[in-house]
């Protein structure tokens, strides 16, 4: 068990190293650079060349990577080419809103999806199972922006109960800001997650060891929560890591509609202005988060069902 955790963590470190190279390489592939984009209108080609030199953009890629990676390791994500301020500030400012949104969504999704998944799984193909399946599938099939627009139209414009955007709002003073974005994000995540829990529950209920536990007289409720759930949760936990990933990446549509100053917005802005240090930093943060989430999911699964580690 412990050795599994150690092995898995070591793997994560390797993944992290590979990842940082990839992030750097991919962002370098973006056509044009900051010098091009900012000043082509006003500067002569020689001046652009000088600026490029000044920004260090004329160095070979390997050297730039070494420089960048060294800085990252010391916690310095560099300076924005556009605003001139430290990249760390930009990351911090954009991560906050996304993090709150993600946590709020997961706090609702996890219990809801587990409950629905178990309900459906224990009544496989029953009326309740089919009803819930239809509803969640339908919700996940409707595009985010449609749900968002409808919700805004109904609850903000018509009824006036909830704010339509985050502009001028502050999360600390008005948490109601969260209600509509979270509602939009729920649809698909609940569907995906509950289906995984459902499948896990059905699989586990059919397992020999559950039949045996029932025959040895373990009462139903205990059977469900102590014997079935840990096994049934495994696919759910893996799906949860993926969901967390997506949510942290910031769901662009939701951020755009509700004017949330989040991660996706910051990333798109940085790409548009070829602000490479910011793009790299944001991508790296996201990648690290994804890595950690998956590490956490694997360790959790291994804790729940130790054998699952051996199956890899």
């Amino acid at each position: 068990m412990r050795s599994y955790a150690a092995g898995r963590a070591a793997l994560a470190v390797v993944q992290l190293a590979v990842l940082s190279v990839l992030v750097f390489a991919l962002t370098s592939l973006l056509p044009g650079d900051a010098a091009d984009l900012r000043f082509t209108e006003t500067l002569s080609p020689e001046q652009v060349e000088r600026l490029r030199e000044q920004l260090g953009l004329d160095q070979p890629a390997a050297e730039r990577f070494g420089h960048w990676f060294g800085q990252v390791l010391t916690g310095d994500l560099g300076t924005s080419l556009i605003s001139g301020g430290p990249v760390v500030d930009i990351v911090r400012d954009s991560v906050g809103a996304t993090l709150v949104l993600t946590i709020a969504t997961l706090a609702i999704v996890v219990p809801l999806a587990v409950a629905l998944g178990i309900l459906m799984g224990t009544r496989e193909n029953g009326r309740l199972d089919r009803t819930i399946t239809s509803i969640t599938l339908a919700l996940s099939a409707i595009p985010d922006f449609v749900i968002a627009v409808v919700l805004v139209a109904v609850f903000s414009l018509k009824l006036g109960w909830l704010p339509a955007t985050w502009i001028g709002g502050d999360l600390l003073t008005s948490p109601v800001l969260l209600v509509l974005p979270v509602a939009v994000l729920l649809g698909r995540t609940v569907c995906l997650l509950s289906r995984q829990v459902r499948a896990g529950t059905i699989n586990t209920l059919n397992a020999d060891y559950i039949t045996q536990a029932r025959r040895l007289g373990v009462p139903r409720r205990r059977l469900l929560f102590r014997h079935v759930l840990p096994n049934a949760a495994v696919p759910g936990v893996q799906e949860l890591a993926r969901t967390g990933d997506t949510l942290l990446g910031g769901v662009l549509v939701v951020e755009a509609i509700f004017a949330i100053p989040g991660f996706a917005t910051a990333l798109v802005d940085a790409v548009e202005t070829r602000d490479l240090p910011v793009v790299q930093a944001l991508t790296l943060v996201l990648a690290v988060a994804a890595l950690l989430l998956n590490l956490l999911a694997d360790l959790t699964c291994n804790r729940l069902v130790p054998r699952s580690a051996l199956l890899k």
């Binding site: 060891y209 559950i210 039949t211 045996q212 040895l216 840990p230 096994n231 069902v305 130790p306």
Partner: peptide, 16 residues
């Protein structure tokens, strides 16, 4: 009454 299935080894819960 306690029943031992044909392959009792597979009747053990891997999570417990």
């Amino acid at each position: 009454v306690a029943y031992m299935p044909q392959h009792p080894g597979s009747a053990l819960n891997p999570a417990r």
